[in-house]
Each structure stands twice: as C-alpha cells, then as structure tokens.
Amino acid sequence: MSVELWIALLAGALGTYLIRLLPLLWMQRRLRQTREREGSESMPAWLAVLGPMMIAAVLGVSLVPRVPDTAGWVATLVGLIATLLTWRRTRSLGLPVIAGVATFGAVIVAVRLVLG
C-alpha cells in the first residue's frame, strides 16, 4: 500500500472517530451548561426521539436477508415472530436472539427442501 493510500486510510479513520467523538463533547458541554443554569440536565426533545428512531432504522435495514429469495423472506418473518414470542415470555436480550436465529435457520432449510 502506497504512502498516499495510508494517509487516506488514516484520514478516513480519524474523520470517522471525530464524527463519533465531537458530538459527545458538544452534548456534554450543553448538558453542563443546562445543569448550571436550570439545576437539571435536559436533552433536546428532537434528539431524545431521534435515538430510538435510529435503532428502528437499523432494524429496518437489517431485515433484508442475505439471500433475499422466498426462503429468506419467509424465514425472516417466522424468525421475527419467534424472537418476539420468546421476548414476551422471557423479557431478556439473549434468549430471543438465540430462538430467532435457530428458527430462521430451520425455516430456511425447511422451505428450501419443500421448494426443492
């Protein structure tokens, strides 16, 4: 890899880090100022709503199966239902994921067997 390419890599890495870091420093400063002024911290309403929306958006993006054929989509749907049902019973993070992945895999294999 040439020196120019290493510089490009480092610039991309530093820029990505700053994109993650600088908003934190800005927000921490803002929270400090609000606390000093009003006695309690407050986050802008739009930001408090945007957080859960970003997670929902990441969920939407991740829903597309790696192989988006019939088996992939059916398995995604059934896998999500299995995840949801397990979450309702256990209210935990890990077990629903395990149940979802296992169901997803089983449905992929089953649908492909049926469809030939």
């Binding site: 997670i55 969920l59 199966p65 995840t83 979450w87 994921v97 992945v101 992929i108």
Partner: peptide
C-alpha cells in the same frame, strides 16, 4: 455457506428486542 446466511439474523433479532419495549 448456510452459516454465513443464518448467523446475520442475530442482528435483526437483537434490534427487534431493543425496539419492541419502546
């Protein structure tokens, strides 16, 4: 090949669990 196709479902499953309580 199947493992590479099945394991990534852990992400939507996890995100679903994180979103549903909201």
């Amino acid at each position: 090949p199947l493992l590479g196709e099945v394991m990534p479902f852990a992400l939507p499953a996890l995100f679903l669990v994180l979103v549903v309580p909201r």
